[in-house]
């Protein structure tokens, strides 16, 4: 069996003293796509936020090992440098910071972390051009402020574009399908699939089966009340689509 890329053990975390994650266990290996599904309020976005280092959340117990590195001890920027990427459910608008400056700062910070020289302007622009093509992102967005005035679809495509630039080892897509029409969904999912390899892995957090028609998961987990209560293959997502979450809730609440 391949090495473990991410191993989350007994993870407890919360916000403002309220516990949301109550002992999450999750193991992900290179090349795998894991879907995490669950009803509203089950802790899906908390899990992605905690793994990415969102300071709003406090970890109270447990661990997360990322290719052998203690993930939870790293700053958000170092988690990124180590190869973690979070595609935000609600990408943040940053007025006054252009996409070009934003990406150049990100790329060069990672190169600095890895002990490499900053990228030349020509190489950088060439790379931006190539990566934009992955999600058919319009050139004109590059000179605009980060996410400012972007449509819902453009914001999500912009997330995947950043993912393409940063070439993460583990990508967490938090509700990437929310707010997308079917064409945008196809482009975004197509972008994710193009970036898949047997060396990286993806966590797809979603409410609906729909996205999983485009990004085929190897494993499906159901998160409920801060725990993974059910794990299965792709067929689990289809079953959820058909039967809803109630049977999962009943099953879990019995325990």
């Amino acid at each position: 069996m391949a090495e473990e890329l991410l191993k989350v053990s007994n993870l407890h975390a919360g916000i403002d003293g309220k516990e949301i994650l109550r002992g999450v266990n999750l193991t992900i290996r290179p090349g795998e796509v894991h879907a995490i599904m669950g009803p509203n309020g089950s802790g899906k976005s908390t899990l992605s936020g905690v793994l990415a280092g969102d300071p709003r959340f406090t970890v109270t117990e447990g661990s997360a090992s990322f290719h052998g590195v203690d993930l939870l001890s790293l700053s958000p920027e170092d988690r990124s440098h180590e190869g973690l990427f979070l595609s935000f459910q609600y990408p943040v608008e940053i007025p006054g910071v252009t996409m070009v400056n934003f990406m150049r700062a990100a790329v060069n910070a990672k190169r600095k972390y890895l002990g490499e020289e900053p990228m030349s302007a020509a190489d950088f622009l060439k790379m931006m051009r190539q990566k934009r093509a992955v999600v058919e992102l319009d050139n004109k967005l590059a000179s605009r402020s980060v996410n400012e005035g972007f449509s819902g679809g453009e914001k999500k495509r912009n997330e995947i574009f950043q993912m393409a630039v940063l070439e993460p080892r583990l990508s967490i897509l938090d509700e990437t399908d929310s707010g997308l029409d079917i064409d945008a969904l196809r482009i975004v999912a197509g972008g994710v699939n193009k970036l898949r390899s047997d060396r990286n892995a993806t966590i797809v957090i979603t409410h609906y089966q729909r996205l999983l028609d485009y990004i085929k998961p190897d494993v499906v987990h159901i998160l409920y009340k801060g725990r993974i209560v059910h794990t299965g293959g792709p067929e689990l997502a289809l079953e959820l689509e058909e039967r809803g979450y109630d049977w999962i809730k009943q099953e879990a609440d019995k325990l």
Binding site: A52, G53, D54, P55, R56, S75, P76, E77, R79, S80, H81, F85, L86, F88, P91, V92, E93, I94, V97, F102, M103, A105, A106, V107, A109, K110, Y113, Q162, L166
Partner: peptide
């Protein structure tokens, strides 16, 4: 400064 914007930038690797 907008904390969400700071975290977003950090999550892309930009030091705080």
């Amino acid at each position: 400064l907008d904390e969400q914007a700071l975290f977003y930038m950090q999550s892309r690797g930009i030091p705080r």
